[in-house]
Computed example of a mutant assay.
Amino acid sequence: MKKVMLSVAIIATMSLVSCKNETKKETTITEQTITKQVASTQTTFGVRGNCEMCKNTIEKAVNSIDGVTSAEWDKLKKQINVSYDESKTNLNAIHKAIANSGYDTDKVMGSESAYKNLPACCKYDHEMEMSLKGEVKEDENSNH
């Protein structure tokens, strides 16, 4: 009987030591976890274009830049909304990427050679207005 009680006491003591070590390990792991937040800058500016193919090309050009987290071009308003990390890229690089793909922005004229290689439906009017305000109907811009 003494042997059984002694065995139970030893097993119970080992369990307590084991539990304490596991708790200690969890605390150490929790203390080592570090969360890094990335600062994001958002901007909107004008970009000329006509159709869904334009949208794909413009957004692809912007999203190819390291540091850009999102880009969405609005076909009707002729503007793009971009979120990016300023520690990795800047607004000029974004304008240049769009221009290199053949599209005018409100700061940089599109590359003429890239423009010539755009599909016929993407050949926009170089005088069209950008960053249109308010509600825009598709019919108002379809003949540009």
Rank of each mutant, 00 (worst) to 15 (best):
V68P: 14
Q79H: 08
Y103F: 10
T43Y: 12
E72F: 12
M109N: 15
A99S: 04
K25Q: 13
R48D: 01
M128G: 02
T89I: 07
K20A: 15
N100T: 11
V82D: 03
E52Q: 14
E26V: 12
T69H: 11
N143R: 13
V108A: 02
I11Y: 13
K107Q: 15
S113R: 07
I98G: 05
S70G: 08
P119F: 04
V62E: 01
L132R: 09
M109H: 12
L76D: 09
T28L: 13
Q32V: 05
K116Y: 00
M109E: 15
A9W: 10
K88D: 01
V47M: 06
G46C: 02
F45N: 01
A12S: 03
S142H: 05
A12F: 12
T30P: 00
K137T: 09
K123F: 06
K88E: 08
G46S: 04
I80E: 00
T35Y: 05
D74T: 09
C51P: 14
N143F: 13
S83E: 07
D139C: 09
D106R: 07
M130A: 06
C51L: 00
V8E: 06
I11E: 03
I29W: 01
S113I: 12
C51S: 01
E140L: 11
V8Y: 11
N90H: 07
I65L: 10
Q79I: 00
M130R: 03
A114F: 03
Q79K: 11
N143L: 08
D104P: 02
K24N: 14
T27F: 14
L118G: 03
N141R: 14
G134M: 03
M109G: 06
I34R: 05
K20F: 14
Q32R: 04
D106F: 04
I34N: 05
N141Y: 09
K88P: 02
M53Y: 07
K137C: 00
C51I: 06
A71L: 02
C51A: 03
E72V: 12
A93F: 06
T23E: 13
N50F: 04
V8M: 08
R48F: 01
I58T: 05
T89P: 10
D74K: 10
P119A: 05
S83W: 00
C121S: 08
N63K: 08
K3C: 01
S15Y: 13
T89G: 05
D139I: 14
P119M: 04
V62A: 03
E138L: 12
L91N: 04
E52N: 15
H144R: 15
H126L: 10
M14C: 15
M128I: 03
S83Q: 03
L76V: 01
I94K: 13
S18H: 06
S83R: 10
S113K: 09
F45W: 07
Y103E: 05
M5I: 11
